[in-house]
Write a protein that binds this DNA or RNA. Structure first.
Lengths: 122, 122
DNA sequence: AATCTATTGCAACACTGTTGCAAATATAAA
DNA sequence: TTTATATTTGCAACAGTGTTGCAATAGATT
């Protein structure tokens, strides 16, 4: 993947935080640095590179967050916390659910999103 | 809540299955019985009544499914399985994740969605 | 049958995300 | 440094999901 201003800025933004960002939030932070479509495409490539991972928040919106212990692709199944008051979504890297599914299902991905009040809003 | 044809049909549809339905799927099954906005509003009321519960699937789309052991509101935290091949979403009533979150977070809801291949698509 | 209130249909809208295509630009090679 | 080329970008247009206001309709109760 080529090095471009858009890529650098978006990656810096995401890597600098343990929060997950939506496309709209990234667009606001970039203040017109690039077109909105470009943001979608950069996010797609960063995910393919394994630098970020994406998931759906409780409102059905895609969120993007930095990968810390991933190699070429996202592989851990940590939980995310979605605050219903301030809207922030945080990676809970240390929280992984334990569960047991009937063998007839072949599980490939896991979305485990908790919601409620974050420490700031409690 | 008043008894209307739309309410009856939508509730029958959802209760007759252990699958979760999206708005679009319900609209297709009802074959023009009522307006699409009505479907959204009936679903909203059925959820308030505790007859169905809703959650977001892996594509960010709302899914609605019957409540079996709920009283006035949905309160269990069972898993859902989203098949990436046929798109169906199934309630796994017997699967509940075990996890531990730092006390500073106040968890109110849980969305635990597994995805991969369902028994039919394996 | 009359009344009141909940429900419905319609139109219009906001938001999220995607696609095709031409123009611009990063990178590697000459 | 210039050239070549494949990637990236901007633009316009679009599809899908979900929401709102308002007037018309239809349950339920009297």
């Amino acid at each position: 993947m080529r090095n471009t201003v858009a890529k650098t800025e978006i990656l810096n933004l995401i890597k600098s935080s343990n929060q997950a960002f939506s496309h709209a939030e990234i667009e606001a932070k970039l203040e017109g640095l690039c077109n909105r479509v470009t943001i979608y495409r950069v996010l797609e490539r960063l995910e393919e590179e394994g630098q970020i991972h994406k998931f759906v928040n409780i409102n059905g919106v895609l969120k993007f967050a930095a990968c810390h212990d991933c190699t070429d692709h996202h592989h851990d199944h940590h939980a995310h916390f979605n605050c219903t008051s301030c809207g922030t979504v945080t990676c809970l890297e240390e929280v992984e659910p334990v569960y047991k599914v009937p063998k007839k299902y072949k599980v490939q991905e896991v979305n485990f999103t908790l919601s409620g009040l974050c420490p700031n809003c409690c």
